[in-house]
Design a protein around this nucleic acid. Structure first.
Lengths: 181, 181
DNA sequence: CAAAAACATGTAAATATTTACATGTATAAA
DNA sequence: TTTATACATGTAAATATTTACATGTTTTTG
């Protein structure tokens, strides 16, 4: 397996909060969940079918306008149990954080390599932009600075903001140090 | 593609430093590179063959003892160019950091969920252990606190240590806050 | 009202990744 | 000297992930 089907649990988790269509789930990966997992609709639709076969979810058809049919999925009792079971299991893996920039950096041996500075400034710009985006999300989703029944979401945003703050600071330091060489 | 063959470049990068066997490369993923990428020997051996077909690397046989043959791979000029090209390209992706614990946390809605505290203490223990491991690596590989022709390696270790320090501190804070509820 | 953008759902093919299967040698420890 | 461990190299099968192919509807914008 290339990662023990965590997508399955994400889908169950999302459906445990709201009934959703495949399209809605796809969208979720472009916002909230996109911060810490990725998936395409071509992976999601077949999986929804499989989860329904396993009776972890079910769907009913809704018709929009004249003929557009959408499938609104709900989690079943069995699905809720599988989700809860997953949440209660240990998570001992600490999977390697695959970061292509860090990978490249590993192969830069000296501070005077002409590739280094462009790499650092590019990453600085990217991570600063991401940090701003996350801060906007936080302000938008938790305007009164409290988590209100959404502790998990609040925490992962806080975590991501801290991560990007730290990442950006590291890059700034590094750029400064290398400049004054 | 499930990630535009970054393994290819890791192998080229490793071979640009030293001639290595497939076994050596496999081992590298259990130490240094394991901090930020993973790969199994069953992925490495076929890829070495492919890279040799593409004339990015070549090998010579070495015999150990009576009959154990090992293939010592070297990077070719063409391989060096491909590696350098990769290093010089932009890295604009900022791929989602797939962290199963964060994923689970997203689906914990309230601070009084009985699953929360065990999750947090488990992760605290794991990240603290990882931090210690990284600090040991740093002390071992850069005892005189300087990077000496290995800037990249030094920086990725520094980066990982900062990341784990921050992660651990976040968990400690969180545990403290939830305890005193 | 025409056009563009967003909604909506799939399949196919290529590639990447993990786990399991398979085999044998050399070296260090007991 | 036997035994365990590390060295060494592969293949097969299952699964995951990405990119491309494919089609059609509804809503918003100009």
């Amino acid at each position: 397996m290339a990662q023990r089907n965590q997508l399955k649990f994400i889908i169950l988790g999302l459906l445990s909060e709201n009934d959703l269509t495949g399209y809605d789930i796809t969208k979720a990966f472009e916002s909230d969940i996109g911060e810490f997992w990725s998936a395409n609709h071509s992976q999601i639709y077949p999986l929804l079918k499989r989860l329904e076969d396993e009776q972890l979810i079910s769907h009913k058809l809704e018709v929009v306008g004249e003929k557009l049919e959408k499938k609104l999925y709900s989690i079943t009792q069995s699905g809720k149990e599988v989700l809860r079971q997953w949440l209660s299991e240990p998570t001992p893996e600490l999977s390697a954080t695959k970061d292509e920039f860090i990978l490249k950096l590993y192969f830069i041996h000296t501070a005077d390599d002409p590739l280094l500075m462009p790499m650092l400034t590019e990453q600085h710009q990217l991570h600063e932009a991401k940090l701003h985006h996350l801060q906007e999300q936080m302000a938008k989703k938790f305007p009164d600075h409290t988590s209100q029944n959404n502790l998990g979401h609040f925490l992962i945003l806080q975590h991501a903001i801290q991560r990007e703050t730290r990442y950006t600071a590291w890059l700034v330091d590094l750029i400064e140090k290398i400049k004054t060489d």
